[in-house]
């Protein structure tokens, strides 16, 4: 299981609504944000490929999301 720290960039002013949408998804914890256009998120994924897929889908499906940038990836071998 991969645990990733991710910064999500949104359109200006749209971070809170994106945070709400993310909160309803499994495997995602919103840890903070600047209240405007950036969110700090922790994501759990079975693999790097799944993590990439998640990021790609988020950018593709959520028109308020501009980009997803990992800042950390750790692996929990026992998970």
């Amino acid at each position: 299981m991969l645990i990733a720290g991710v910064v999500i960039e949104t359109l200006p002013g749209r971070a809170p609504e994106v945070a709400l949408r993310l909160a309803s998804r499994g495997g995602v914890q919103v840890k903070g944000g600047d209240g405007d256009r950036r969110l700090a998120v922790v994501v759990s994924a079975a693999s790097g490929a799944e993590l990439e897929r998640w990021a790609e889908e988020l950018v593709r499906d959520d028109e308020a999301v501009l980009g997803v940038f990992p800042t950390y990836v750790g692996e929990d071998e026992r998970a």
Partner: peptide, 27 residues
């Protein structure tokens, strides 16, 4: 736990990248 530790590290990293927002110190 290893998982909590990794989650804390991940959160710290993402929050640090944002810079100066609530949650950095705790993480």
């Amino acid at each position: 736990s290893r998982r909590s530790f990794l989650e804390a590290s991940a959160a710290a990293s993402a929050l640090a990248a944002l810079g100066g927002v609530h949650g950095v110190k705790q993480a």
